[in-house]
């Protein structure tokens, strides 16, 4: 079920909300990619970051230096970190999302893989995305629930990275994420204390992600 960097640059589009850690997740992803010896890129956004605003963030990872920095149009992977995107999609009944929410279905191809933070089953999510009968792989993980249970706060990033480790094992792995957390949390003992819980959340993300 994994995809490989042998096919060239992998392009990712993240869907989240301003101020809820999506930029941090994309940044962690790029940082982990660089630590694994690849070229990583994350472009936060082209709009104003305001708390709560639905946003799209772009990432690229490649074995070769990354030349371009334009928005990702045809993502290989769509990561939806904000669970309400699926709720809005469900409410739209296959129609248009409210204009202020970037549509996760935009520019996708048959190969686009979805990784979604939602309590829904992958089958249900696939149906809501309108991808029934399509070859797309749709994976879901309840990263918010995992984060609340393991870390005690709504920070689903590490659980989502766990799910990504299953889809993109070449780039994301436990050991490197641990290294990354140790570096970024290192200065504060309060944050450092959260590393084991974050790793547990990542492990659960890896184990609990289901795909259809």
């Amino acid at each position: 079920m994994a995809i490989s960097l042998d096919q060239g640059t992998i392009e990712i589009r993240w869907h989240g909300r301003g101020g809820q850690g999506t930029v941090t997740a994309a940044k962690m992803f790029a940082s982990v990619a660089v630590k694994r010896g690849y070229h990583g890129q994350s472009i936060p956004m082209f709009g104003l970051e305001r708390s709560g605003t639905p946003v799209a963030v772009y990432s690229r990872v490649s074995k070769e230096p990354i030349m371009r920095n334009d928005p990702v149009r045809h993502p290989h992977i769509v990561v939806i970190t904000d669970p309400s995107v699926m709720v809005y999609l469900a409410a739209s009944r296959g129609g248009k999302l409210p204009e202020s929410i970037p549509d996760p279905r935009e520019g996708i191809t048959d190969e686009t893989i979805f990784i979604i933070n939602t309590p829904m089953s992958p089958e249900e999510a696939k149906k809501i995305l309108g991808l029934e009968g399509k070859p797309n792989k749709v994976c879901t993980v309840d990263a918010t629930k995992i984060a609340l249970e393991e870390i005690g706060r709504n920070v689903p990033n590490t659980a989502i990275l766990g799910a990504m480790a299953k889809i993109l094992p070449e780039v994301v792995d436990m050991e490197t994420v641990k290294e990354e957390l140790e570096e970024s949390f290192g200065a504060s003992s309060k944050l450092r204390a959260l590393i084991p819980a974050n790793l547990k959340a990542m492990e659960r993300g890896y184990n609990e992600v289901k795909c259809a």
Binding site: A26, A30, S31, H39, G40, I43, P65, I66
Partner: peptide
């Protein structure tokens, strides 16, 4: 600004 100042790369 942003496209370099806030974009993460190697």
């Amino acid at each position: 600004g942003y496209i370099v100042s806030h974009t993460i790369g190697n």
